[in-house]
């Protein structure tokens, strides 16, 4: 006969600090006049955790990302971020200046289109150094040195350091955007379709790069995408959105291998192999 084993609860015996959320999204609602947007969204992100948000176009996932990264206002709810040395704070109760500072020091934002996140008329080195300079770093040699290190990390030739990104391919521009965001070692990075619009071989390179950097820097990431094979490789957890709400969530492999909601099943079954 099976011997009874006593369940002492999932959190017993583990260090609690690790399970303290870095970001807590509570009942966030933002609706547009046409009824689209996101509705009553709640979830948490832990330090070092990669959370994927998937769903079709118009499901509200990009709206949600704009809201929780403080780039759009919300109708209802709160977004609590655990600031380094300060503690949990609602980002919508911060001043504009505080929020900008936060975005510069502890956050990174990677846009789908590198043009939205990279300065096209500033050299690659200047792009990478910008965040450091705005944080008060003035030592030119050091900034340039780090820019060089980061170009190497994202596999861009060092002799392109003085070229402007206008002359770069789409994949290179995206890698530059990643370097520019990660150079100041943010704790949380928001990504909106980081591989969208890139061809497959370039995508693989970006995914590989992101995987390595997430591990190396212990980044927490919220990544919005509809690329399921990519998100399987990157994300620990998935949120599936449809018509503005989260309809299914769980560990990435659970959601993709044993989807329960009809829409998630449809999403997964539409792929040759997710």
């Amino acid at each position: 006969m099976p011997v009874e084993m006593e369940n002492r609860g999932p959190s017993a015996g583990n260090d609690q600090d690790f399970y303290r959320p870095l970001l807590e999204v509570n009942g966030v609602t933002r609706l547009y006049l046409n009824g689209l947007g996101c509705r009553d969204i709640s979830f948490v992100v832990h330090p070092g955790e990669v959370v994927g948000i998937v769903g079709e176009s118009g499901s509200g996932k990009s709206t949600l990302l704009s809201c929780i990264s403080g780039r759009a206002t919300i109708d209802k709810g709160s977004v609590i971020y655990d600031m380094e040395g300060v503690g949990p704070k609602n980002i919508f109760e911060m001043s504009e200046v505080e929020r900008e500072r936060l975005a510069l020091t502890e956050w990174g934002i990677i846009h789908q289109n590198p043009r939205d996140g990279v300065r096209m008329d500033v050299s690659a080195g200047g792009n990478i150094g910008e965040r450091q300079m705005s944080l008060g770093l003035r030592h030119y040699g050091k900034i340039r040195q780090q820019a060089g290190d980061w170009l190497e990390k994202v596999e861009i030739d060092l002799d392109r350091i003085d070229d402007t990104p206008k002359a770069f391919s789409g994949g290179m521009q995206q890698r530059l955007q990643i370097a520019r965001n990660l150079v100041t070692h943010p704790r949380l990075v928001f990504m909106d379709e980081p591989t969208g619009g890139l061809d497959i071989s370039v995508q693989a390179r970006i995914v590989d790069l992101l995987r390595a950097l997430v591990r190396e820097l212990g980044l927490a990431v919220i990544i919005v995408t509809h690329d399921l094979p990519m998100v399987r490789l990157l994300a620990d957890r998935l949120l599936v959105m449809q018509r503005g709400t989260i309809i299914e969530e769980g560990l990435t492999d659970q959601v993709l291998d044993d989807p329960h909601h009809p829409y998630t099943q449809l999403l997964v079954s539409s792929l040759p192999r997710a």
């Binding site: 084993m5 006593e6 369940n7 002492r8 609860g9 999932p10 959190s11 017993a12 015996g13 583990n14 399970y19 832990h46 955790e49 620990d236 957890r237 769980g250 560990l251 659970q254």
Partner: peptide, 24 residues
């Protein structure tokens, strides 16, 4: 039903555990 495993000396129900705990 439940799946109990011994993790770091503590018996835990996998079916009810939080995702980040399952990961650990």
């Amino acid at each position: 039903g439940q799946v109990f495993v011994e993790h770091l000396g503590v018996v835990t129900d996998l079916t009810g555990a939080k995702p980040w705990h399952v990961k650990a």
